[in-house]
């Protein structure tokens, strides 16, 4: 058996242990309701951050409209359960696929743009999606879609997150991921390597949007409501900050960024007036002193910790 497969099985083992530990603490109520809610939020944010990292970090396409796809997942999932009476699996599948379809339709024309122009276009598209939702009475318009059953459970959020993380990890370590990295590094050179750059940009964008949709379904079915105010560009910036905090191009970085920022938000929730101020100062200071984020584009791994201690070799996977 290949060593990579063994590494995967080991990672799954770690995930299972982690799950058992948290689940145990939830069942015995060592973790209370407030932190349970934030745990689920952390998982949703991890999905959002790692999926945005596929677009911004791996492929180097600067998107800041992720909240739009998050919204589509949230609303489409809720329509399935509230309006049409389907179960959660259907909601998850429909939410994921519809966000993916919109991502594809949006990505195809806009991914021709570079850098700042793409950023501002995706920002605009995210807002257009929100404004459209705001104007659809069928989903509650400005007051939001209410009465969504809480179908998201901790185990469900956890294992969906693990599955998505595996997907993204294996994507990166394949010819598909390499093509995306090549585009980030030098688009013209990638082109002359026989890589259809548009195809891979759209692919990364579509996959990233789909996962944001998955996160959206989990979100609206945990917090009982899908409200347009949850999906403004502030949300997109939040997700982007998680990715940049952890280090663009590092999946473990995005995971860490999502955990840290959600945790800080939660810890400061008793001081709402100071929360955003501290958050913003932290953002500026971080960028001034460590613009590449916590991990740069490296992945956190046991080898990395070991090599830090020994000052030694590089890690992969």
């Amino acid at each position: 058996m290949n060593s990579l497969v063994k590494a995967d099985i080991r990672k799954l083992g770690i995930a299972a242990v982690l799950f058992a530990a948290i689940y145990g603490m939830l069942e015995t109520e060592i973790i209370g309701a407030f932190w349970e809610l934030n745990l689920v939020l952390i998982m949703i944010n991890i999905i959002l951050a790692t999926s945005l990292n596929m677009i911004n970090g791996y492929t180097g396409q600067f998107s800041i409209g992720h909240a739009g796809f998050f919204a589509i997942g949230a609303y489409m999932g809720a329509i399935m359960t509230v309006k049409l009476g389907y179960d959660m699996p259907v909601a998850l599948i429909v939410g994921t696929i519809s966000a993916g379809i919109v991502g594809f339709l949006v990505g195809l024309p806009t991914l021709r743009l570079n850098g700042d122009y793409l950023a501002i276009a995706t920002l605009g598209l995210g807002e257009i999606i929100r404004i459209c939702i705001l104007n659809i009475e069928y989903v509650g318009g400005a007051s939001g879609l209410m009465g969504i059953p809480r179908l998201t459970t901790f185990p469900m959020a956890f294992w969906i997150m693990v599955a998505i993380l595996f997907f993204i990890k294996n994507f990166k370590n394949s010819a598909y991921g390499r093509a995306c990295l090549a585009i980030r590094e030098n688009e013209i050179a990638a082109d002359t390597m026989g890589i259809d750059t548009t195809r891979y940009k759209v692919m990364a964008f579509t996959l990233g949007a789909s996962f944001a949709g998955t996160a959206g379904v989990l979100f609206s079915h945990y917090f009982f409501i899908a409200h347009p105010a949850s999906f403004t560009f502030m949300r997109s910036f939040d997700i982007l900050t998680m990715v940049v905090l952890g280090g663009l191009g590092s999946m473990t970085g995005s995971v860490t960024g999502a955990i840290v920022l959600t945790f800080i938000s939660a810890a400061l929730s008793d001081f709402p007036e100071w929360r955003m101020l501290i958050y913003s100062v932290a953002m500026i200071v971080l960028m001034l002193y460590r613009p590449q984020g916590l991990f740069g584009d490296k992945e956190l791994s046991l080898q990395m910790i070991r090599s830090l201690k020994m000052g030694g070799k590089k890690n992969d996977d």
Binding site: V244, S280, I284, M287
Partner: peptide
């Protein structure tokens, strides 16, 4: 570039929330 952009977003949040306070 992305780091500067994030800084700009940070400054924006700072001004907004500073004024709220």
């Amino acid at each position: 570039r992305i780091a500067i952009l994030i800084t700009a977003i940070g400054v924006s949040f700072f001004l907004e929330n500073g004024m709220i306070l």
